[in-house]
Design a protein around this nucleic acid. Structure first.
Length: 226
DNA sequence: AATGCCTAACAAAGATGCCC
DNA sequence: GGGCATCTTTGTTAGGCATT
């Protein structure tokens, strides 16, 4: 992939946030919360970089795949390649802070992470770097073995909670879509009516009543306030 | 307002290395 | 050699901002 592709021209497949008043922006940025990132940081210190299976087994990050964890690790380290830290019990934040200060013409970054611009590293070179990084950054065993990772009370319950949250969001989405359709309809009717005759106070009240909508959370909102 | 460009996030696939 | 785990690359989707 050389350059990112633009959205397809013409009709878009979804309603975009910049097409309307941020109806879709109730979501936090997808991916990782600060808390989850902190748990991963501690897990890397405890289990070592790349030991995703151990982290998954520990149940400290339910629902995260190794690919997701690898990407988040890259972001914390501030570099794309994690191979030179494989198996090391390190604080990724420390490396990240160092990497963020590195400047130079030869430094290429992608999404803030330093990417490898030279030839692919040989096995020997990776081993050499691991040894170097071990010397420089690895925590003492007493330190990393004492790290306590937060455990969900019951991973199954957590999963169930995520599922019902998904159902709730889907309902909310349907509701918003219905609101948009209603607003469009009301807008068209309003245009037609206002071009035909001046609006009375009674008309305004009737219109206001139409655009009050029940929300999944039990609240009722006036849609013209959006 | 409509559309394009860039970036971020993620999933999937391919490549590679290790262990039995 | 086969299976598995991990690493890397590629492709897709979506949000934000700029431009027309």
């Amino acid at each position: 992939m050389s350059t990112p592709r633009s959205m397809t021209a013409g009709a878009r497949n979804i309603l975009r946030s910049n097409d309307s008043a941020s109806l879709w922006n109730y979501t936090v940025a997808p991916g990782w919360s600060i808390n989850e990132a902190e748990i991963l940081r501690k897990a890397l210190m405890k289990f070592g970089v790349g030991n995703w299976s151990k982290i998954i087994e520990s149940n400290c990050l339910v629902g995260k795949t190794n690919a997701q964890m690898n990407l988040q690790t890259q972001r914390m380290l501030g570099q794309q390649s994690t191979a030179e830290f494989a198996g090391l019990h390190i604080d990724p934040r420390l490396i990240g802070q160092k990497n963020s200060l590195i400047q130079g013409e030869h430094i290429r970054r992608k999404n803030g992470c330093i990417v490898n611009t030279g030839a692919k590293l040989s096995r020997e070179e990776i081993r050499r770097r691991i040894a170097e990084n071990k010397e420089q950054y690895e925590l003492q065993e007493e330190e990393w073995s004492a790290i306590d990772l937060p455990l969900p009370e019951d991973p199954q319950l957590l999963l169930e909670a995520k599922r019902s949250e998904k159902v709730r969001l889907e309902l909310e989405l349907k509701n918003v879509q219905r609101q948009i359709a209603m607003l469009r309809k009301a807008g068209k009717r309003f245009e037609m009516e206002s071009s035909e005759s001046p609006k009375t106070e009674q008309d305004e009240e009737e219109h206001a009543e139409e655009i009050i909508e029940d929300q999944p959370n039990g609240k009722r909102i006036r849609l013209d306030a959006c």
